[in-house]
């Protein structure tokens, strides 16, 4: 029951997708079933995102509750979660059932602050705090990559030298100043880099990788549908 039922469900839900590929979704029963199944998959997918949030709340609440080292930072996380989440789920107008009760207590002019639309607290926190912070986290990688280029990017052997030379050439080619510099050695050099490196060797290798990965994904899909691959179920 604990394993067989999920295997049967995975098989049926996958089989509908495979068979309906060959049928016109607008004219057949199975095609309509496909539409419904995909809608269900999207809805269930939404709930999976919430699993992570519940985990974060649990872990941080535990740390704050036990006053472990650095618990104030965890408290900041919890406050941020609720500062973002609570206004976003409050009703925007008094037209819904919950809204009619809510706006008997609070003034209706507050409506624009709630929900997720532009001008809401949610949107403000995202645009002015969350978004710049996320961008900064990734911007810091520029410093690390510069440091790595200096410390670790060595022409130790022929293969590493080839990698290094290509990287330098591409770095030059992808900037206006570098393109102008490369043209000093021949007007066609930037074009050659695009044709023979990016669309030649690079495209060939990436093609080899995507073909291999796609074959792997297809065979893994078949294993999941047939119930051979069950690791996604975890233990127990």
């Amino acid at each position: 029951m604990r394993t067989t039922l999920p295997v049967i469900i995975a098989f049926i839900s996958g089989l509908i997708m495979v068979v309906s590929f060959f049928l016109n979704p607008q004219t057949t029963f199975l095609g309509n079933t496909e539409e419904e199944v995909l809608q269900w998959a999207s809805i269930i997918g939404g709930f999976t995102l919430l699993l992570g949030v519940v985990s974060i709340v649990r872990v941080n609440s535990k740390t704050v509750g036990q006053r472990k080292k650095g618990w104030l930072f965890n408290l900041a996380t919890l406050i941020s979660i609720f500062a973002m989440a609570i206004p976003s789920i409050l009703p925007v107008t008094s037209q819904s059932n919950f809204g009619s009760i809510f706006y008997k207590v609070f003034p209706e002019s507050w409506g624009s602050l709630f929900g997720t639309a532009p001008g809401s607290i949610y949107d403000w926190l995202f645009n002015y705090l969350d978004s710049p912070m996320m961008a900064t986290m990734f911007a810091m990688l520029a410093f690390y990559i510069a440091s790595a280029a200096y410390r670790a990017f060595r022409a130790r052997n022929a293969e590493a030298t080839l990698l290094l030379l290509t990287a330098v050439l591409v770095m030059l080619w992808r900037i206006p100043m570098g393109e102008a510099f490369l043209r000093l050695f021949g007007d066609n050099i930037p074009g050659y880099i695009n044709t023979y490196i990016m669309n030649g060797a690079n495209a060939a290798v990436q093609r080899g990788i995507v073909i291999g990965a796609a074959l792997g994904a297809a065979s893994m899909s078949l294993r999941i549908m047939l119930g051979i691959e069950r690791t996604y179920m975890g233990k127990g």
């Binding site: 520029a142 990559i145 280029a149 200096y150 290094l164 770095m171 206006p176 100043m177 570098g178």
Partner: peptide
């Protein structure tokens, strides 16, 4: 942003060359 992009690329290429010479 292209000017800044150009200058940092050149800087990193410089780092790679300098790093390899010292290596």
């Amino acid at each position: 942003g292209m000017d800044a992009q150009s200058l940092v690329h050149l800087l990193i290429i410089g780092f790679v060359i300098l790093g390899n010479i010292s290596y």
